[in-house]
Amino acid sequence: MTSVMADLGRLYPWLDDAAKHFNLPPKMLEGMHVALEEVVMNVAMHGYAHGTPGEIIVHLGTESGAAVLRVEDYGPPFDPTSVQVPAKPVSLEDADAGGLGLNLLRHFCEDISYVREADSNRLTLRFPLEVS
């Protein structure tokens, strides 16, 4: 899909279908929805912010006891795992409304890895299948 709004709407029906295929638990799927939205919004708002919409490739699979979401884009290098997690806002004035996403992403997916490969960003989110 591409990073244009209308295309991003296809994300969730696709994820629900794919999750059904792998028989993923509903609770995991809820977390996946949040994590995926945060990742894709990052790409759409920062990676492809200045210029024509770009390609985002999303893949769901399973491997060694985990469901694995992979998100790939061709924007400038951006490693969300290297960004300092912002502290929770202590007052309304401190709340950087845009900076909430990384907290959410890391809460709903504890195992995130990033590689820059040629001209693409590849982010891998692992969701353990065992109840932790």
Binding site: E30, E38, M41, L92, A95, L100, L104
Partner: peptide
């Protein structure tokens, strides 16, 4: 039944202005 940071952002910004 679903919200993430983008939706929260709208609520927080509105709340900030109200307060």
């Amino acid at each position: 039944n679903f919200i993430a940071s983008l939706g929260l952002r709208s609520i927080v910004l509105a709340g900030k202005t109200v307060m």
